[in-house]
Design a protein around this nucleic acid. Structure first.
Length: 215
DNA sequence: CAGTAACA
DNA sequence: CACG
């Protein structure tokens, strides 16, 4: 077999962004319907809301969470909380389909045994963005971050340990999964302002799932 | 500072 | 890049 690859089924592309950071193109395509159904159920219990940063600005991205903990921000700062500050209720449980996808993606990226205890759900409408930042509110930085893109495409920024480090831009599409850990665990990243559009699965929005071990 | 705005 |  001289050219076996010519006849092999197309395998999802794997791009290495930096040591310990992998882009798994289309990895969540099969799971996407279950993920979207899960988001709808979570949203019914813990509605999306625009949180406020310590600086007093309202974020353009609408957020909610599921799992034992949820990421929250207000004038007091960033933190993980076991209850939804808007309702006082515990965050909705993390659906098994969420957990399973995150574990599979992490293993695929070289981080076996990933056991996320929180999933932050971000909803973008046109114009919404997330400035360059680090995920550094988690107790144990040993676990990776797994990020799933659904719906409208967006431009992802991938920087380095220092905020001033060179920033690379990548297009993320429906079903793409990003996983980063190890030496890249604290790398800066962000999302540029979403461009208007329509996606059959999500309409005029982009949804992102970010899995973490926070506690 | 997971922010905006003022730069050139 | 400075900022409050």
């Amino acid at each position: 077999m001289a050219q076996p690859d010519l006849f092999a089924p197309p395998s999802p592309a794997r791009d290495i962004l930096s040591p310990g950071a992998l882009l798994l193109r289309g990895f969540a395509l099969d799971a996407a319907p279950d993920l979207l159904a899960g988001i709808a159920a979570i949203e019914a219990q813990a509605p999306f809301r625009h949180m406020v940063t310590p600086g007093g600005f309202t974020m353009s991205v609408a957020m909610t969470s599921c799992g034992a903990l949820g990421w929250v921000t207000d004038r007091r700062g960033y933190r993980y909380a076991p209850h939804d500050p808007d309702t006082g209720a515990p965050w909705p449980a993390m659906p098994e389909a969420f957990r399973a996808l995150a574990e599979r993606a992490a293993a695929e990226a070289g981080f076996p045994g990933f056991a996320p205890d929180t999933c932050l759900i971000n909803r973008y409408i046109p114009g919404a963005k997330l400035a360059l930042h680090q995920d550094k509110d988690e107790r144990d930085t040993g676990a990776p971050i797994v990020s799933v893109s659904l719906g409208l495409p967006a431009t992802f920024q991938w920087g380095g340990l220092q905020r001033g480090d060179t920033v690379r831009r990548l297009a993320l599409e429906h079903g793409d999964v990003l996983a980063w850990g190890g030496p890249s665990r604290l790398f800066h990243h962000g999302i540029l302002a979403l461009k208007p559009g329509h996606h059959p699965a999500t309409g005029a929005t982009r949804l992102n799932l970010t899995f973490r071990r926070a506690g």
